[in-house]
């Protein structure tokens, strides 16, 4: 029996009512976005002063979505964003879990200093380092596949990898992995080492299999961060070839008059897939955090 089934019917009704009211409070910008994405600019503003703003009423049009695709190159930017997110998260899972393994399960000099450093680095806001980092990557040698084959270039600017490589190693992810790895009983790896296993085998066959959920947690957190990346590509990726979704939206704000209908359509196209993915994955995410060290 779950707790809810023991509750009295009036209480459950009251809780339900509360949940519905709260849902309205949390949902209104989302409804506004969806409704507005189907309206003309004039209609959006005309409806703004009434409840109509949240409802798909009046003369509805799909033109904003057509515009978002035609003008916004949304397909191309979407591909870039998916690629950046997937590659960063995949590399990040490996790199950060390996580091956390070294910190949590291996004995070495200087470990405590590295852990302290990580905790401190956790609070460095990205805005604080973005300009020096930009100056840095502008001058890092890169590679490109041009007409002459592989060529060395003098800069990371305007590439896909400038949006990936700096973000693979992530203090927050290492921190999450570290907490989980630390709490796995040591008996297993001690036994494995006695049997002559290498640290790699311990990582691969003991630690990773027993902490699957935290990989899920890190995936969600890093994926959300990468998907929403804005400031960094804005300053390092001037061209359209490597431009991600979030920066793509900027062009609808660039004109002197914002094309709100298209902005809303574009935003809906960015947001809805993430929400669908969320509905799909949320049970998994919930379970995963249960398994991770977060719950203590």
């Amino acid at each position: 029996m779950t707790p809810a089934q023991r509750r009295s019917i009036p209480l459950r009704l009251a809780l339900h009512a509360l949940m519905v009211v709260l849902a309205a409070v949390f949902l209104f910008p989302f409804l506004f976005m969806l409704a507005s994405s189907l309206k003309t600019n004039d209609a959006i503003f005309a409806d703004l002063e009434s409840g109509r703003a949240l409802l798909p009423v009046g003369d509805l049009t799909g033109a904003n979505y057509v515009g978002a695709f035609a003008r916004g190159h949304i397909g191309h930017y979407l591909a870039n964003s998916v690629l950046i997110t997937v590659v960063t998260v995949a590399l990040g899972l490996v790199v950060n879990s390996l580091a956390a393994f070294a910190l949590a399960r291996l004995e070495w000099r200087g470990k405590q200093a590295v852990i302290t450093l990580l905790v401190i680095l956790l609070v460095v806001p990205f805005e604080a380092i973005s300009v020096p980092l930009m100056l840095l990557v502008a001058k890092l040698p890169g590679i490109a596949f041009g007409a002459d084959g592989v060529v060395l270039t003098g800069s990371w600017l305007d590439t896909i990898y400038v949006q990936i490589i700096p973000f693979v190693a992530n203090t927050f992810s290492i921190f999450l992995f570290y907490q989980v790895f630390r709490d796995i009983p040591k008996d297993f790896d001690e036994a494995a080492y006695v049997d002559g296993a290498t640290p790699w085998q311990v990582y691969r066959h003991i630690i990773v299999p027993s902490s699957g959920p935290v990989f899920a947690t890190v995936t969600i957190l890093q994926a959300l961060a990468m998907w929403n990346q804005y400031l960094w590509p804005l300053i390092t990726v001037p061209g359209e070839a490597a431009r991600p979704l979030m920066v793509g939206m900027e062009q609808f704000f660039s004109a002197r008059k914002t094309a709100w209908g298209e902005v809303m359509a574009y935003a809906a196209l960015i947001t809805v897939p993430v929400l669908i993915a969320f509905v799909f994955f949320q049970r998994w995410f919930v379970r995963s955090v249960v398994g991770s060290g977060v719950k203590g």
Binding site: A144, A147, I160, I164
Partner: peptide
């Protein structure tokens, strides 16, 4: 990743 870089050349 390597394939991608292809699109970035001049």
């Amino acid at each position: 990743f390597g394939l991608l870089l292809g699109s970035c050349g001049p």
